[in-house]
Design a protein around this nucleic acid. Structure first.
Length: 292
DNA sequence: AACCTTCCCTGATGGC
DNA sequence: TGCCATCAGGGAAGGT
């Protein structure tokens, strides 16, 4: 499930390759992922990709006349297909990490948007579960602000401040875990990094926010950017579907402390990692390091 | 306002 | 072998 580190990895990968590229043709699959009138796609042709940015789990393509905003949902993949790479390629030599598995798909029944570039490369959006969404906005600052008005703090930016963090948690009786998933609180945190941050901070995911001590809040506040940056450093977490813009899987899954490690022992204390459901979400924690 | 539940969707998995 | 039920989960929408 792509969260901030995965979206950031995709964004950086694309950024280094498609700035300045001109759109030649658009091909669509399932129209369900498009959150705008289909015929507006005609407007994209001949526009140039000027820049890329990210807000929370959204990736934003700045074009001449529009902004294309994409959310990958659960299983969304944004890859740059290159005509010089054979479809049968399954491995790619990476300068630092050696041979890596890649999953560069030719368009299939799950490919819902193909943005064909002038030079023959194709920016593809593929999403098996179709929880992803694509928006087309005019290039207007106010409209962009409105679009993101309900999103919370960017955890890796200046605007991420402890006073705002504390203010949001004040008086909340909900367990802290679902609050971390609230995009109106901190944008970009999802199920994996929420569990990882709570473990790093030593906080039980079911603990009600109002009962967190100042010290615990401080630890959690700092743990969030720490685990997100670690995720980015290892190219994101691939559990099943996530791949970057080159079709490469992430490496961060090998460094997870709790997520998906139920039944295994905690690397810090040796206790058995447990999995419970909190706020309708699978939640992983160490019962010894994260006491109520 | 805060909190909780349901729904969307498909592939993987397990029981029989 | 095949069929069915169940599960995963981001976020919107609906209810309390």
């Amino acid at each position: 499930m792509p969260e901030l580190p995965e979206v950031e990895t995709v964004k950086r990968g694309l950024e280094s390759q498609i700035i300045g590229a001109r759109i030649n043709e658009i091909l669509v699959g399932d129209l369900k992922v498009l959150q705008f009138q289909e015929d507006l796609l005609f407007d994209l042709v001949d526009q140039t990709i000027k820049s890329l940015s990210r807000r929370g789990k959204y990736i934003i393509f700045e074009l001449n006349q529009n902004r294309l905003v994409i959310h990958l949902g659960m299983t969304g993949q944004l890859t740059l297909w290159r005509p010089d790479r054979f479809d049968s390629d399954r491995f790619l030599r990476h300068p630092k990490t050696g041979l890596q598995r890649i999953r560069q798909h030719a368009p299939d029944k799950h490919t819902h948007l193909q943005i064909c570039l002038e030079d023959g490369r194709i920016l593809m959006f593929r999403d098996t579960r179709k929880f992803g969404k694509i928006f087309l906005l005019p290039c207007d600052r106010i409209i962009l602000e409105q679009f993101f008005s309900k999103l919370g703090m960017e955890p890796l930016d200046e605007e991420y401040r402890f006073d705002r963090f504390q203010e949001f948690l004040k008086g909340r009786k909900a367990p802290v875990k679902p609050l971390l998933l609230d995009q109106g609180f901190i944008a970009g945190v999802g199920n994996i990094y929420a569990d990882e941050a709570l473990h790093l901070a030593g906080i039980h995911p079911g603990k009600r926010a109002r009962y967190l001590t100042r010290k615990e809040k401080r630890k959690l506040f700092e743990a969030i950017p720490t685990v997100l940056e670690k995720g980015i450093r290892y190219g994101g977490t691939t559990l099943r579907d996530y791949i970057d813009s080159d079709g490469r899987e992430g490496n961060h899954q090998e460094f997870l402390k709790v997520y998906g490690r139920n039944g295994k022992s905690c690397q810090r204390c040796g206790s058995e990692i447990r999995k419970v459901v909190i706020g309708q979400r699978g939640t992983h924690f160490c019962p010894n390091c994260q006491k109520r």
